[in-house]
């Protein structure tokens, strides 16, 4: 393991905290002014609301939450694709706004939608990605074959649009691994994959952490996956973190109500309360 102040990818790491988010807030202009519950007073929709957490180097940190709870927005903020309205985020001690270029070299992200140039092949798409991360063509081609081979993708020269969604998702994962990020942001990386592919990807994630010194931030709707992979889990609802602990710790916290709790029970318990409040609100409105 590298120590503080050490050099990695030509970047000096300023801290052993891989990710430090403090009081991060992000809102969007509301497009549906009539739906009251998404609004605060300014007619803005708070997607991420005063979120603070830290991820230590080498951890796999899960972010769980219902649809629309702000997980992807949070990840976009970390990935420099959105500028937060409030708070700050540091990656290994580098502020994402002040040291944007440095941060960009340390991170990569996989999103739910495998976004590619549809007519380009897997090889052409990944070659483009690799060059953006200043890899030379020869090394890139070798690495691309290696990673795609491991993920079971053999068709390197067919347009990507001919591949199934699951296979495209694997290519998207390969794209992120290709740049050897030390902070990997995975936004539902296994959604849409069959059980075997899912397991392959999960093993790949563990390998990235164990052998390539990567720290991982992961969102998923698969509670078993979170339980299996994550060292710690935050549960986010309505843009706010409502619980944070190890999967074990979270399960312990509801043992007094449910004797053999799973992470799914925890999710239901914690986000269920919110559901009641929302339904009440909806009643009030109507």
């Amino acid at each position: 393991m590298q120590v503080v102040g050490s050099d990695l990818k030509g970047v000096t790491l300023m801290s052993n905290v891989a990710l430090n988010a403090q009081n991060v807030g992000k809102s969007f202009a509301s497009e549906e002014p009539f739906i009251k519950r998404w609004r605060n007073r300014n007619g803005k929709r708070l997607a991420v609301n005063d979120v603070s957490f830290q991820v230590n180097r080498g951890e796999i940190y899960g972010v769980l939450g219902p649809n629309g709870s702000g997980k992807s927005t949070l990840i976009r903020c970390i990935a420099t694709l959105l500028i937060p309205d409030a708070g700050y985020i540091e990656i290994f001690g580098h502020d994402i706004e002040r040291d944007e270029m440095i941060v960009k070299r340390l991170i990569n992200r996989v999103s739910v939608d495998a976004a590619f140039f549809k007519k380009l092949s897997a090889m052409e798409n990944l070659l483009y990605a690799a060059r953006l991360y200043s890899m030379d063509g020869l090394t890139a081609r070798r690495k691309i074959r290696e990673i795609l081979g491991r993920l079971g993708i053999k068709e390197l020269n067919q347009p990507l649009e001919h591949m199934s969604r699951g296979m495209q998702q694997k290519v998207a994962i390969a794209r992120a691994f290709l740049s050897s990020p030390i902070l990997l942001l995975l936004d539902e990386p296994t959604t849409g994959l069959d059980p075997r592919s899912k397991r392959e990807v999960q093993e790949f994630v563990l390998e990235m952490r164990d052998q390539h010194d990567a720290t991982v931030l992961l969102t998923t709707h698969d509670m078993d996956e979170a339980d299996k992979l994550c060292d710690r889990v935050a549960i986010i609802d309505n843009g706010k973190i409502i619980a944070e602990d190890t999967p074990q710790g979270l399960k312990e916290s509801i043992r007094h109500r449910i004797p053999q709790p799973t992470l799914e029970d925890v999710f239901m318990e914690l986000t269920g309360k919110q559901l009641v409040v929302e339904q009440d609100l909806a009643k009030e409105v109507s």
């Binding site: 976009r76 990935a79 420099t80 694709l81 976004a115 549809k118």
Partner: peptide, 11 residues
């Protein structure tokens, strides 16, 4: 194409 976020995220 939907690739804009990836291009803008690159260093």
């Amino acid at each position: 194409e939907g690739t804009i976020e990836y291009t803008f995220m690159a260093p």
